[in-house]
Design a binder for these strands. Structure first.
Lengths: 202, 202
DNA sequence: GGCTAATGTCACCATATGGTGATAAATATA
DNA sequence: TATATTTATCACCATATGGTGACATTAGCC
């Protein structure tokens, strides 16, 4: 009975991944080392090498899980126009960013490191990322007068930066990102930008 | 003759700060440790403790220098309106961000760490930062219908994120931040946002 | 000159990191 | 039951980190 046994590889692997994931979610990538993972999992670090071949293997495993964790797509909705849709999706994305510390830690990791293992993680992350904005390329076309990808990149970049920034210093450019009120201002400003940009455009 | 002497405290201090600064500019804050600074400066690490009291002292010193390094204000100009001014200043700021790797490393540091020594660094950085956008609060008032600080925060956050991102993965949301062409798209998109937001507003 | 204080050198500590080889213990297989 | 293989433990290595006490050397000063 392999599943009730104390010595169970699958079970140990799960413990390792769970520990690594929680470490990444709570402490960030800085705390993600072989020793700390082994300690947190209550497992000898040798097993991390035996089962995953080292950190890269663990990261790859996490990258795979990532697709499932944040894989839920935004609820399909009837959108009136491109601006409405973009605004709605951006709002949902911002909400997710603010809720999922893990996601912010991964985004910060992407900014800090450009090792090979990071690239696989980024790929998985950007797949889930794409789930939100794939819809933008759907039935509703963006006005051709506007460089929608560039506009979206600016808005997304801003949301990434501001949510990460909220975790540390908490304020930026006069905004207090610890308060719900100022987050509402950000949200409103983003909506204004979208609506003004696409107003009367085709 | 204290200045030609081999044993010269002021000279040694300068070497330490120079090494630390270059390390920060070239390698980023991750590489900023006592041992590496001492090695790069060709100085015994004990002296870093003797003269600066440790890393915090070094960082404080760098923070002070920061005000001078990036202290040059944007050239005063006659602006027609708030949108023109904002667009011009943002363009200048983006240019500086793209040119100064050091600045990007500090911004990333601010995102990653929230220790006390970082707060002093951030203060100095945001002073210089303010030099650019102080002007926005100048004679030309922002239209009261628009939440200008929130709009500015979004644009600045985006520029920070995109310039940092260009150093590592180099691409984001469909843009290739290694190419001048796509940076031009970012620049144009930002200008569009500013002009559309402030158009017909008072 | 010679004394004192500043400046710099070096050896050492504790701790943490990633990584591995040899061995023990439990499990599956014959 | 006996054997072979998987699973896990442990001791150890090399390296790097921050930090300090004891000592050597040079400088300025009387």
């Amino acid at each position: 009975m392999a599943d009730t046994a104390i010595r169970n590889r699958a079970n140990t692997e799960a413990k390792i991944i769970k520990a690594a994931t929680e470490l990444l979610a709570n402490e960030g990538f800085q705390a993600l080392g072989i020793n700390k993972i082994a300690a947190a999992a209550g497992v000898d670090k040798k097993l991390i090498y035996s089962y995953f071949g080292g950190m890269e293997g663990v990261i790859e495993h996490i990258a795979n899980d990532l697709k499932l964790w944040f894989g839920s797509e935004p609820k399909p909705k009837e959108f009136i126009n491109y601006a409405e849709m973009t605004s709605e999706l951006l709002g949902q994305y911002l909400k997710t960013l603010r809720e999922e510390k893990m996601l912010r830690h991964i985004l910060l990791w992407e900014l800090s490191d450009n090792s090979d293992s990071l690239k696989t993680l980024e790929q998985s992350r950007s797949i889930m990322f794409g789930k939100w904005f794939m819809q933008m390329k759907g039935e509703l076309e963006s006005p051709s007068e506007v460089d929608a990808p560039a506009i979206n990149a600016i808005l997304l970049a801003a949301m990434h930066y501001l949510t990460i920034r909220a975790d540390t210093l908490g304020r930026f450019a006069g905004l207090d990102l610890k308060t719900e009120a100022d987050w509402q201002r950000v949200q409103n400003a983003a909506s204004s930008i979208i609506h003004e940009i696409y107003k009367d455009k085709k």
